[in-house]
Amino acid sequence: MLRWIVWRDLTLAWRRRADILSTVFFFIIVVSLFPLGIGPETELLRSIAPGVIWVAALLASMLSLNRLFANDHQDGTLEQLLLTPQPVFMVVLGKVLAHWIVSEIPLVLIAPLVGLQFDIPNDTLWILVLSLLIGTPVLSLIGSVGAALTLGLRGGGVLISILVLPLYIPALIFGAGAVEASIMGTTPAPHLYLLGASAIVSLIFSPWATAAALRISVE
């Protein structure tokens, strides 16, 4: 069941490749705007890079959250999925996993390139990738709660950012903190451990909350 849902969502996403690319370009463009707004001093850019890249990743992943359930909700597939004997937990987990692969993995892959724009040292680029790799599942998992709650509401796109962004703050702090610690020359391990802990906690709790929210929204 899990594999089937992931496979189905991946196939659907593959047929609309432009959506994936637009998320990636959004990420790159937002990150590139900061030097234009702040100025080209390398020293300053390097010190703000972790925060800028992480905030852009937050915004980019939030942008794609609308698609998580909306299409299935519109054509009625979602109701059918909720009616299957499988636990809703698994449905949610499958869809979140697919969303992570489709929307977050490209960001993780493109992040080193963006990091070069900010003159991040090579060793730190690996930490940036690692922090995004551990941290982006948190974004997908928490975001799915917001996506389920705002399903089918008018102005859902803006509303979801108000609901979800405050809950993203721990991931932002630990993720950007790891990269920053690495730039400063100290060990990023504590931040990464905490980020991993956040990922596990959200893996346990948020599919339940999303499942409950879906039942409420579809009812």
């Binding site: 709660v145 809950l167 903190g177 709790f205 409950a212 929210a213």
Partner: peptide, 20 residues
């Protein structure tokens, strides 16, 4: 749902902000 998710998150946010 949102309030309960928020309540679980409040201590996490509080400690993360303090460490930050």
């Amino acid at each position: 749902v949102l309030a309960l998710v928020g309540v679980i998150n409040v201590p996490i946010i509080y400690f993360s902000v303090q460490w930050w």
